[in-house]
Design a protein around this nucleic acid. Structure first.
Lengths: 345, 345
DNA sequence: TTGAAAGCGATACCAA
DNA sequence: TTGGTATCGCTTTCAA
């Protein structure tokens, strides 16, 4: 369905002038007689002429557009904080009059190829599954880029992170105050933030004097792995956990559902803490979680990418945002007495 | 920060061939010797060459991108169903390998000028405040377009709407079954869907034999008008309402907060029903509301705009989706006896 | 004041 | 099998 848009040639023809003159008239550049300008402007209006933005971008060397990578938005709002993030980015970019491109045609293509095709002046990466080497090839190309939730990034890149370490520490400290000593952790290592949270968990449970039993740290093979086998492993421990911290709220909710089927009561038998404070966390029972300011992350990212585009050094485009423990209904005092559930004959 | 990307000329020079040959080698077109191709491909890789998408689009006459209008996302997820919609659009477009452009630079500019600048193959409009004449100028230009939540649209346009009339009718029917006879309505007329819901309210309360007191239909001057004066008007009626239907969940929540301050108990003193089932509706107390399938609206819109781009007739790109009454905690039986609150000395 | 022509990057055609 | 050239729409420079 080749859409035929009017071009400046059409306008020039209609006004009876050359394209060069038409261009000058429309852009108020150079010396033009009043009548000529009027004629051109009128012709442009009659034809509903809109200058082709592709060409214009090509010549100006900038597009006024920033690319947002690792979309399409994959999940419903339920299991993700992504949408708050997007809202933030949208707000931030609107303030600097920059449009936003959400990539859908990116599966199986080299990141650099997608981003370096001239469509965007800069990029914001939500690199759930991007490797450092991929980022480096981007950085080498010189595209102004802000990476989110990724602390280990190439030199010329901006970044917005959240204080994963602080959040995990706060969660474990809180559990400790409730009497818990054996806190399990569950998260795949599919993205940088999960990796950071795992490390923070190891560090915090050590620093706080909690059990450092390696069996308590559960790393599933992939994002959607069934919980059953991991639950069995935890139960098989000489001393099973009395609390569970998960890599994000989605996992926590999945665990809550699974535990209910198993007849395990939360928080009486087991306390559960999520991460992110995604919309789903405040629903229903109410998940205790570590809130990260998704909206603010997005706003900052937009601000930073704009700064980079304007030539600011990357050092001025990096920030780590604080997180906050939100106590709801899935955490409670450590259960008294022996913790035994779901014994099998 | 004019980003200097490698061009096909750089590749050709590096490989020691002409640009024409380089192009053919990279696109597997025409007859090319194996060695030449290898040399070109190697040069392209070394330079990290990515063909300029702007140029390519220009020549192909299509961009593989669809514009989404009436953004930037203005509100937090709280008061809006917009984000579910966006998720749906994103999913739908991903399936047809189409990127999405979110406009930020649209304030104060003619809609047609923004959309008809060659950057997108089609558009999805969330026309909260767009007039019919604006739509018509777009339609005249021939851009494949799907309008959302707008039943009165130009001929060649696609559309996805929800059954506002059915939803309002269901809400009033339900209230009637609870014994209510005097149901108020609150919504500004700032967008098409609110207008439709208002009309549906007038129709439904007439059909159902409820009070048709004009004083019960409250139209604030704008979206964020304070509720106080309207509440006073309702209270000044000889017979005040026992239930309130609002144009969307955001208004309903605002009313709930206002009513709480006034010491009015919901639903004991007044029943409240929202519209949309935005995330906020299921939070806290739980708002009774009419659920509209935002996600599905978005997915359909994406599908339809793709069809239009491929040349399908608009008649095959229109749908009205059903809505569903979700009963939660803000509705109950009509209060017994005289309904008097907030008496002033 | 106006017009003609070069150039932006890539592709497609026709010659060589 | 290659290379040169026209083309897309627009801006800019240089002549007229």
């Amino acid at each position: 369905m080749a859409l035929r848009l009017p071009t400046i040639r059409d306008v020039a023809a209609q006004a009876g002038v050359s394209v060069g003159t038409a261009s000058k008239a429309l852009n108020n550049r150079g010396r033009i007689s009043t009548e000529t300008r009027a004629a051109v402007v009128r012709a442009a209006e009659e034809l509903r002429f809109a200058p082709n933005a592709l060409i214009r971008s090509l010549q100006e060397g900038r597009t006024g557009t920033v690319g947002l990578f690792t979309w399409p938005v994959r999940e419903t709002a339920l299991h993700s904080v992504d949408l708050a993030l997007l809202t933030g980015v949208s707000h931030g970019l609107a303030e600097v009059q920059t449009d936003m491109l959400l990539y859908a045609r990116c599966e199986g293509r080299e990141l650099a190829t997608v981003l370096l095709d001239g469509r965007v002046d800069g990029a914001i990466l939500v690199p759930h599954e991007l490797s450092l080497s991929t980022l480096e090839s981007l950085a080498a190309a010189g595209l102004p880029t802000v990476a989110l939730y990724q602390s280990d990034i190439p030199d010329p890149m901006g970044s917005v992170c959240v204080d994963n370490r602080g959040g995990v520490h706060a969660a474990l400290e809180y559990l400790k105050a409730l009497g818990h000593r054996r806190v399990a952790f569950y998260a795949p290592l599919t993205s940088m933030d999960f990796q950071e949270r795992r490390l923070a968990y190891e560090e915090a449970r050590h620093d706080l004097g909690l059990s450092t039993d390696p069996g308590l740290c559960v790393i599933p093979e992939n994002y959607h792995a069934p919980l059953e086998p991991y639950w069995q492993k935890l139960q098989a421990l000489t001393e099973p956990p009395t609390a569970l911290l998960t890599g994000n709220d989605g996992f926590a909710i999945a665990w809550l559902e699974f535990l209910e089927k198993q007849g395990v009561h939360v928080p009486q038998d087991l306390s559960v803490i999520g991460f992110d404070d995604a919309p789903v966390a405040s629903r229903g029972a109410g998940l205790t979680t570590v809130r990260q300011p998704g909206l603010q992350v997005g706003e900052l990212a937009a601000m930073f990418v704009n700064r980079l585009i304007q030539g600011a050094p990357a050092a001025q485009c990096r920030q780590i945002l604080p997180v906050e423990l939100i106590v709801r209904a899935t955490t409670g005092p450590v259960p008294k007495g022996l913790f035994v559930v779901a014994h099998r004959p």
